[in-house]
């Protein structure tokens, strides 16, 4: 049965890396935050596969839950700054 777990790990690892890329390079900020939540979600499943249900539960309750909420709370407050610091023509480079 360990073959099954390895295959699952492979799929989840790929999902995680791609989600992380979306979070870093994605176009809009809400989607980046959602992708970070997806990274947490997949990480939590990986923790279950790696035989650490305690950590998986923490990640499930906190990582894919509370921290996403925190981000969206703040993002809802600063809607004007959503696109700040992106490379559009005319903005100076730091």
């Amino acid at each position: 049965m360990s073959l099954l777990l390895t295959a699952m790990t492979l799929v989840l690892c790929i999902a995680m890396i791609v989600a992380a890329f979306v979070a870093i390079l994605g176009k809009s900020l809400p989607i980046a935050i959602l992708a970070a939540g997806l990274v947490s979600l997949v990480a939590s499943v990986l923790f279950v596969i790696l035989a650490s249900p305690d950590v998986a539960m923490t990640e499930a309750a906190i990582g894919s839950g509370l921290s996403t909420f925190l981000f969206f709370f703040v993002l809802g407050r600063v809607r004007g700054g959503e696109r700040d610091g992106e490379d559009e023509p005319g903005s100076e480079h730091g």
Binding site: P53, D54, A56, M57, T58, A61, I62, G65, L66
Partner: peptide
């Protein structure tokens, strides 16, 4: 069971 104060607090 898995879980404890930190997880329960988060829930």
């Amino acid at each position: 069971t898995p879980g404890g104060g930190f997880q329960g607090g988060a829930v």
